[in-house]
């Protein structure tokens, strides 16, 4: 493994029961000192990846190193080097914020003045100075989330795992969390962030891997991934019932400069064009000529949603709803929390 990588996962596999293949050969690596995003819909395998890399769960196959230590052979060293903020958080609601941080430090062998100073520092950093003495039960959602992150940092880990750090937060509070997280970058800390918010990955991650059905389908910087798509995204919703894929594709075959055509089950057509504004009239004319009725059309600069569509072959929203239905009751409970 390269010394510059804080995380290296190779061909990770994990199945739950016989039906759910959570990870299906997941491979990626995270350069030290960067914020790396794992982006994918619910059920794509992000949380399972975090559970395996943090030594909580055992992979069925594959290997991984975190902070230079093998997760299977050196789990104790891995645990010493990482901070983990899980989706559930893991706070003791019947204790104060300060007590939570103190216990976390103590299990990492910290104590005395050094620990109390570190706690003061973190409470201040996460704007919880006044709340430190109050029970966590009385905290707002945003405060709890900030304490979650503070808790992951008490022992100054080398690698911080943030599993869906802003799920369930109000947009306003989410923006605040983003500020906190971007401030963490630098100072040598490596952050692995999982999210199903495209915007969040775009904002925070220097590098990202797009995960779908337990595999990495694309990897790169957010801008690089978008640039790779070249050109604008054209989305057309077709009105006529008779619009089957073959007819649509045949109609569009004559349109010049149209690329990467995808036609999904909701009678929506996604394609890319070097110059969207100039291509749209030709597309509409071609569809009209084939008696295919158009309900709506949009042209947009590439977004991460388009990147996802390109590599996973479906839109992000679709993947979310399909995978939601497929998930087990337990995981749903998790997501609600």
């Amino acid at each position: 493994m390269s010394a510059a990588n804080a995380i290296e996962a190779v061909d990770l596999r994990k199945a739950y029961g016989e039906d759910v293949q959570a990870l299906d050969g997941l491979t990626f690596s995270v350069p030290a000192g960067t914020v790396f995003g794992l982006l994918g819909p619910n059920g794509a395998g992000k949380s399972t990846t975090v559970k395996i890399l943090t030594t909580l769960a055992h992979p069925d196959g594959g290997s991984a190193k975190v902070a230079g230590y093998d997760i299977l052979d050196q789990p104790a060293q891995v645990r010493e080097s990482i901070g983990v903020v899980s989706q559930a958080g893991g706070l003791d609601r019947e204790a104060t914020g300060r007590e939570n941080l103190r216990l976390q430090g103590q299990v990492f062998g910290m104590g005395g003045r050094e620990l109390e100073q570190r706690i003061d520092e973190l409470l201040e950093q996460f704007r919880l100075d006044d709340a430190g003495k109050r029970l966590v039960r009385e905290y707002s959602g945003g405060m709890q989330r900030r304490l979650d992150v503070a808790q992951g940092l008490v022992h100054r880990p080398k690698v911080l795992f943030l599993d869906e750090p802003t799920t369930g937060l109000d947009p306003e509070v989410r923006a605040e969390m983003w500020d906190e997280i971007s401030r963490l970058a630098g100072a040598g800390l490596t952050v692995l962030l999982t999210t199903h918010y495209l915007e969040e990955a775009d904002q925070l991650a220097a590098q990202l891997a797009i995960v779908d059905k337990g595999r990495v389908v694309a990897e790169g910087t957010p801008d690089g991934l978008k640039r790779e798509l070249r050109g604008d995204a054209i989305h057309v919703e077709l009105g006529s019932e008779s619009a089957d894929e073959a007819a649509v594709r045949e109609a569009l075959a004559r349109v010049e400069g149209l690329d990467q055509i995808i036609y999904d089950e909701n009678r929506a057509l996604h394609a890319r064009a070097e110059d969207g504004a100039r291509t749209v009239p030709a597309v509409l004319a071609a569809l009209d000529g084939a008696d295919l009725e158009v309900a709506a059309v949009t042209v947009a600069r590439p977004s991460l949603d388009d990147v996802y569509l390109r590599f996973a072959g479906r839109t992000f929203g679709e993947a979310e709803s399909v995978d939601d239905r497929r998930r087990t009751g337990d995981e749903k409970k998790e997501a609600v929390r």
Binding site: T54, L56, V84, S86, D92, G109
Partner: peptide, 12 residues
């Protein structure tokens, strides 16, 4: 349910 056990299991 609150993730407290899991938090301890990924600590030393």
């Amino acid at each position: 349910d609150r993730g407290v056990i899991d938090r301890f299991l990924v600590s030393p």
